[in-house]
């Protein structure tokens, strides 16, 4: 369970999140929508522990642990996963080697048995098949020369391999074709269950037709100004943020 209370965060001294509260129970999927620059990615980075995002007030507890006190890798081990809005390229780091290293780092930290190269490849190939990814993407350096959509698929591959307890998807649907969009939804839906929850950041109602959220929140100027059921996303799609912002 993720419980964010009165979260304030600043970047370079500039306040971006201004008293954000949000509770996501195990098994739930919440969507966050909001205008450009409202602080959605900032929220995702604060949850993942990126340097330079200073929490000035508030708290985040994750399955009873103080998330903000943990290093990024500790958060990953505890089950936090962020699918990046703009995944980085890592020249010189092979995708398969990276994936296996990450998987084993997490497994080691959790006291689970490491995967040998054979077991790993078997699992990776199976996951890639579902994601409709060509196998040569394992051999290539992480995200180098990948198209925008391929990078997002690669994020979903990491999600599927690491099978976290909590996933933040930061606009994973942006720039994806219809088939890829369904693939993202399938990845999330296949993980859905009592031990998995997610925060899906998106600009489009379209994705939410495939990943039906339990709750939808509107973020504006670093705060949640409105929450509702899936119908809220449809409302926003039809009338934009202006009405919601004016009412708040």
């Amino acid at each position: 369970m993720l419980k964010i209370e009165n979260l304030h965060a600043a970047v370079d001294g500039k306040p971006i999140l201004n008293g954000l509260s949000l509770t996501i129970a195990p098994g739930e999927v919440h969507a966050v929508m909001g205008p450009n620059g409202s602080g959605k990615s900032t929220l995702s980075y604060v949850l993942a522990g990126r340097e330079g995002y200073e929490v000035t007030e508030g708290s985040v507890s994750f399955h009873g642990q103080d998330l903000l006190a943990m290093e990024p890798e500790e958060r990953a081990v505890a089950g936090m996963f962020l699918a990046f809005q703009a995944p980085v390229e890592l020249p010189g780091v092979g995708n398969a080697n990276f994936l296996r290293t990450a998987l084993n780092a997490v497994r080691r930290a959790r006291g689970e048995a490491e995967m040998d190269a054979m077991q790993f490849l078997k699992l990776a190939r199976a996951r890639m098949k579902v994601l409709n990814m060509p196998e040569d993407m394992l051999k290539r350096p992480v995200n180098v020369g990948f198209s925008g959509g391929e990078k997002k698929r690669n994020e979903m591959l990491q999600l599927a391999m690491l099978a976290p307890k909590f996933a933040v998807l930061d606009e994973t649907d942006s720039g994806l074709d219809i088939d890829a969009l369904k693939m993202v939804a399938d990845t999330v839906n296949s993980l859905r269950g009592p031990d998995f929850s997610a925060l899906v950041i998106t600009h489009y109602q379209r994705l939410l037709n495939h990943i039906v959220p339990d709750r939808v929140h509107v973020l504006s100027a670093g705060r949640i100004i409105k929450s509702g059921g899936p119908e809220l996303a449809q409302e926003l799609e039809a009338s934009g943020y202006a009405g919601v912002q004016a009412a708040a």
């Binding site: 993942a48 990953a76 081990v77 980085v88 890592l90 990276f98 290293t101 690491l162």
Partner: peptide, 11 residues
């Protein structure tokens, strides 16, 4: 790059 790797659980 460093943050990305750490966010995937790598110390």
């Amino acid at each position: 790059h460093l943050f990305f790797l750490r966010s995937r659980g790598i110390p």
